[in-house]
């Protein structure tokens, strides 16, 4: 059996309000699963819950996460005792499940150079080869290592974050709208990089609100609305418009209006 991440029955609450309702999700090694939906539909919250990083009260109240990598299996407790959760998630964050943030510029420590940050991430994975091989793999020049985050463009910052993910060697990657705010010339190579990572066996959950971008890149698409997964389909089916849920229909129609007919 290949590497697989299974999330079952996830429920997240803020006080009495339920923000994520019983979400099930399966992510296999080597696939890109797009999680699409309007802003506030619970996509990012679902991803953060999978990293044990929900900081609202009471947060995750129900759900199980099971990750199988080779012959090892991880089942961090998603709710209950804080210390037990902290210990369990610290063991899988980065090493097993990585994270590509939405705003890469803000996801880098503003007071440390790129080289130190990427090098440190590599050391966390037990690699002593420094930052340069990983910057090179992410398509960046060695000179970037000496720069501070505020000296990078949006696309370069995103590549630095990808370099960190490569250096960390995560088996699964949660990419939270990693191309938001980037122009198409920068966005396309980054999306190709994600595809390349998946081809190397990394399972990627790609959070986006851009249905058009999923075509040709994602293997599967999950549509979220009001904290629920309302549709599980493929980019081709979305493109044909044969969707069953009203929320997915609304998303497809809106995208078509922008694109002029087809979801592309």
């Amino acid at each position: 059996m290949g590497d697989v991440l299974t999330l079952s029955g996830l429920e997240v609450r803020a006080g009495a309000e339920v923000l994520v309702h019983s979400v099930d999700l399966l992510l296999a090694a080597g696939e890109i699963c797009a999680l699409v939906g309007a802003s506030g539909s619970g996509k990012s919250l679902t991803a953060r819950a999978m990293l044990g990083l929900v900081e609202i009260d009471p947060g995750v109240t129900r759900g199980t996460l099971e990750i199988t990598v080779g012959d090892r299996s991880y089942q961090p407790p998603m709710s209950g005792d804080f210390r037990a959760r902290k210990r369990a998630f610290e063991g899988i964050r980065g090493a097993v499940v990585g994270y590509l943030p939405q705003d890469a510029g803000r996801a880098l420590d503003p007071l440390r150079t790129v080289g130190r940050q990427v090098g440190h991430t590599a050391r966390l994975a037990g690699r002593d080869d420094g930052p340069l091989p990983w910057l090179d793999k992410a398509g960046l020049q060695p000179s970037v290592a000496g720069r501070y985050p505020h000296e990078l463009s949006g696309g370069m910052a995103q590549r630095v974050v990808i370099a960190q993910a490569l250096a960390r060697g995560s088996r699964f990657l949660l990419a939270d709208e990693p191309t938001t705010g980037l122009d198409p010339a920068v966005r396309r190579p980054l999306l190709r990089e994600l595809r390349h990572l998946a081809d190397e066996g990394v399972g990627i959950l790609w959070i986006t609100h851009d249905l058009r971008a999923t075509r040709g890149l994602a293997d599967r698409v999950l549509v979220m609305s009001e904290g629920r997964v309302v549709e599980s389909t493929t980019p081709d089916v979305l493109d044909s418009g044969e969707v069953s849920s009203p929320a997915a229909r609304k998303l497809v129609d809106a995208t078509r209006r922008i694109a002029g007919g087809r979801v592309r």
Binding site: L53, G94, G98, Y99, P101, Q102, R106, A107, L124, R168
Partner: peptide, 10 residues
């Protein structure tokens, strides 16, 4: 975000 990202890196 960078604190969250650091946590996510492990």
């Amino acid at each position: 975000e960078y604190v969250l990202a650091s946590q996510a890196h492990g």
